[in-house]
Amino acid sequence: MTDGWALLGRAADLAEPGQWITGWLGAVPVVVRNFAGTPRGFRNICSHRFAQMLTAPTGKGPLRCPYHAWVYDADGVPKAIPFNDTDFHLGDADRQALALPAVAVLVTGGLVFTHLQPDADPAPVMGWPLTDGPFPQHLPDGSLIGPDAAILERRSSQRGCGC
């Protein structure tokens, strides 16, 4: 049983501020980004017109939607909205209301895990044998890992049916 947790990527890909990892939890695109040293996870969907924002598996840069360049901060709140003064007129409360829904993030054993429920209990993942062999080893979410946090197969790399 995964209890909804899924392997998203390697902690090494979040080592520097601004680095991010993307993936899918079922039919929901998610992103985890290093915000000034703290990994924060969100639904990877712009609050404006629902575009998936980041599409590469990993990268470095702002959490910015390519459609209209909305940029989100560590709380998932749109902090930069082009033409806001003339076309949106969104104040602080409006922006807070448009914050990206958070997802739970757990970094352990050199790996990054996520869960759609932001307050999900991390205990199931803590029980997964991430550092002990034998390798390769299938994780309960269907991913396959090798020694030294090597990811051989990542179930969250593909969009699921969401059913």
Binding site: V28, P29, R49, Q52, T55, G162
Partner: peptide, 12 residues
Amino acid sequence: EMVQAGRAGATG
């Protein structure tokens, strides 16, 4: 296509 990908998972 990115909007299509995001649409089903949007909650807002």
